[in-house]
């Protein structure tokens, strides 16, 4: 009966499933520093973050649905939709301060509405999450195309200038990141996220334990929609324009990041911090491949292989730790 595992490292991993990814991250930072000493400077770190901030937020969004054992393949579509909506809004009403602020509000509302639709079809209509959210993503992308048939409308100057501005010597993205981390920090301590994880651990036992499973899953999708919208803001700041196809490539990367961060697609165990680390791992693998002087045509392959291997190692360690 007494089979409590005394192995401290395994126990740590069980408590914090993102530890393997943290170790991978540290190794990657060191490797990056070894091949390109400049890469450990503040400047290049800020550069890394600003390049990957949008994907980090998208991974955060994905994490909240994975927590409750769902998956959202429409996040890319949502990003595109929010991106073109706010750019078109700013373009139409001129780029004044109030218009920019209103556009942000609009973006959030759109994101949450998309989340509501996904939550409805997956949790209330009980359709398979993978195919249902794929269908909604086609719908969202159609809507994005309707709003802006071709890419290239510029975002309001105010919008992207703010995004690249330094305040008190600190870049805006750092403020944005800090604000978001603070938000996530509080969310992590919220009743809602606990409930979300408990639901993901097993629908039946959560139901018997008196939790409202359907409502909780819908709320997970709402939160996912919210963070997808915020991710779209960062992407818009980064690209300074509207593009109805901008999010297409990001959906599957967000899923990979969640898994890289130690999240289990079967639910109950995923951490937002882990998913953000997952994105940084993807980013650092990409830069490392560049720094070690891989011929350009080989870079994508080495990146893909490294990500696959990182995924395998992470999952393997977590499975061992849970056993």
């Amino acid at each position: 009966m007494h089979k409590n595992n005394k192995n401290i490292s395994l126990q740590l991993i069980r408590n914090f499933p993102f530890i393997p990814s943290l170790i991978i991250l540290i190794v990657l930072i060191l490797l990056n520093g070894f091949y390109e000493p400049n890469s450990i400077s503040i400047g290049s770190l800020v550069g890394l973050i600003s390049t990957y901030l949008a994907l980090m937020l998208l991974a955060v969004a994905q994490t909240y649905v994975v927590m409750s054992a769902d998956i959202d393949l429409s996040v890319g579509g949502v990003i595109s939709l929010v991106n073109v909506s706010i750019v078109a809004f700013m373009d139409h009403f001129g780029g004044g301060v109030y218009v920019v602020l209103l556009s942000l509000l609009l973006g959030i509302i759109i994101g949450i509405l998309c989340g509501l639709i996904n939550g409805f079809v997956v949790a209330i209509l009980r359709l398979q999450a993978i195919v249902a959210t794929f269908a909604t993503s086609i719908f969202f992308m159609g809507l994005a195309l309707y709003i802006m048939p071709v890419a290239g409308t510029p975002a309001s100057d105010l919008f992207w200038l703010t995004y690249f501005e330094n305040y008190f010597g600190i870049p805006f993205v750092i403020y944005a990141l800090s604000f978001i981390i603070l938000l996530i920090f509080f969310l992590n301590k919220s009743r809602f996220v606990k409930t979300l994880l408990a639901v993901g651990d097993g629908y039946l036992s959560a139901f018997q334990g008196g939790l409202d499973v359907t409502k909780t899953r819908v709320k997970g999708f709402l939160l996912c929609g919210f963070f997808s919208a915020v991710s779209a803001f960062c992407l818009t700041g980064e690209t300074a324009s509207g593009d109805p196809l901008v999010g297409t490539k990001m959906t599957l990367l967000s899923v990979a990041a969640v898994v890289l961060g130690g999240g289990a697609l079967s639910g109950g165990s995923a951490s937002v911090i882990g998913s953000m680390i997952g994105v940084l791992i993807i980013g650092l693998i990409n830069s490392l491949v560049f720094f070690i002087g891989t011929p350009s045509e080989w870079q994508n392959l080495i990146q893909g292989l490294s990500i696959l291997i990182a995924l395998m190692i992470g999952i393997y360690i977590n499975i061992k730790a849970q056993a």
Partner: peptide, 16 residues
């Protein structure tokens, strides 16, 4: 049992 495996003891006790 109606407990969530990944949650802590105290969280489980007051989960709902």
């Amino acid at each position: 049992l109606s407990i969530a495996n990944h949650a802590s003891v105290e969280d489980n006790v007051f989960m709902s």
